[in-house]
Every structure is written in structure tokens, then in C-alpha cells.
Amino acid sequence: MFTLTGAGRFEQDVKKSRFVAWAGPVNDEDEARRFIAAHGAPDAGHNCWAFRVGALHRFNDDGEPGGTAGRPILQAIEGQDLDRVAVVVSRWFGGILLGTGGLVRAYGGTASSCLRAMAREPIIAFATLSVACAFADEARLRAALAALPATLVENTGFTPAGVLLRVTVPCGQVEEVIRKTADATRGQAEIQRGDAA
């Protein structure tokens, strides 16, 4: 899956109606709704939108016939393997009726063209590890983690014999980080896996 690296715009005319799409990265539903509110055109006849954040997806036809605008925009997002993305397409009516098929093509095509033209980056899932180690092993463990694709989030506390550390790791490299952590602490560290993010 991919997300966008920034916001972008695409505009086209379809049978004298003007369609303007804005798309951008979002992290949650509140951010998606703020993006849609900020990029919908107040003077447009319709501001139709869709967003996807993980399993959560929403769309709105904003007065267009049901299923002719919001769903095609969502399909454009999903069809390009995008996640954490919001798209709003504004329409100014040009005097020629497009029909339901024409609306589906116009809204979906405008959203799709906008998304295709934008820079994207892969979405990397992260896991959190809680590591308990002896005071004597802490410096070695920190040095080992610094050389790995792991981020020491914080020192979360102490045990009678040592410290508790929280480490964020790309999911695909959890086993390597666990192995290196065990090596750095001579197998004495206690490691617990947390939720992926």
C-alpha cells in the first residue's frame, strides 16, 4: 500500500462541466474531514468526496445521483493501492446533462487522473517492542539499536535489576531486532511485542 507525499490538484472539463479534484494524505477520519472541508469549493454545485484510512472508508455524493460520485472516487483511491488518502472533487455544471454513466466516469476519472499524477510513498507498518534489560547491558543495547532500523522511543521505567525500553521497528524487521537485542544482552533481555501501528 502507498500514501501520497503531499496534496495536489487536477482539473478537467467534461461536456462543459468543470471538475476539480484535490487529493492529499490523511492519518485519521478527523484529518480527512478537515481536508475535505478545506478543499471543497464553496461556489461549486457539488463537492463530492471519499477517503480511506485502513479499514475505514467513507464517501459522499453531495446531491449527485446515488453511487455516481463518492463511490467512483473511492474506487479510484482503492484501484491505485492507496491508503490514508482523501479526495474531494468539485463540479460546476456546464449546462449539459451527463447521465449516471457520464457522472461515474467524470468523477472517477478526475479523481484517478489527480492521484496518478501525484508522488507517493510506501506505507510501512511498525511494531512496538518492550525490552527489559540489566543496567549493565543498557549502553550495549542502545549501541546495537542505533545500528538497526529501530527507533528507541523512550526509556519507560525501571525494574529492580535494570531498565525498560520501548522500541519501534518496521514489522518486516522485528525478528532481526529481537535477535540483535538478544546478542547485545547475551540473551538476558526480556522482550515483549506490542501492537503494530
Rank of each mutant, 00 (worst) to 15 (best):
L4F: 11
T5R: 15
A7E: 13
A7P: 07
G8D: 05
D13L: 00
S17M: 04
S17W: 10
R18L: 04
F19W: 02
V20P: 13
A21D: 02
A23Q: 09
A23R: 12
G24D: 08
P25G: 04
V26C: 01
D28E: 00
D28R: 03
E29A: 13
E29N: 07
E31K: 10
I36E: 13
A38V: 10
P42T: 10
P42W: 06
A44K: 12
A44M: 13
G45K: 15
G45A: 09
N47I: 03
C48L: 02
C48A: 14
W49R: 10
F51S: 07
V53K: 00
V53Q: 01
G54I: 05
A55P: 01
H57C: 05
H57P: 00
H57I: 00
H57G: 00
R58Q: 14
N60L: 06
D61G: 08
D62G: 11
T68N: 00
A69W: 02
I73E: 02
I73N: 06
L74E: 02
A76I: 07
E78A: 03
Q80A: 13
R84D: 09
V85C: 14
A86Y: 04
V87C: 12
V88S: 08
W92T: 05
W92M: 00
W92S: 01
F93Y: 08
G99T: 01
G99Q: 06
G101D: 09
G101P: 09
V104N: 10
A106G: 02
G109H: 02
G109S: 04
T110K: 14
C114L: 07
C114S: 10
L115Y: 03
R116I: 01
A117E: 14
R120I: 08
E121T: 09
A125C: 03
A125M: 07
F126V: 03
A127E: 13
T128Q: 12
A132C: 10
C133Q: 11
C133E: 02
F135Q: 05
A136M: 06
D137C: 07
E138T: 14
R140W: 05
L141Q: 12
R142A: 14
L145W: 15
L148F: 10
P149T: 12
A150L: 09
L152P: 01
L152Q: 14
N155H: 13
G157W: 13
F158T: 12
F158W: 11
F158D: 11
T159F: 15
P160A: 12
G162M: 07
L164P: 02
V167H: 08
T168Q: 10
T168G: 00
Q173A: 14
V174W: 13
E175V: 02
E175T: 07
I178K: 12
R179L: 12
K180R: 11
K180V: 08
T181G: 00
D183C: 03
D183N: 11
A184W: 01
A184G: 06
Q192W: 10
G194Q: 09
A197G: 07
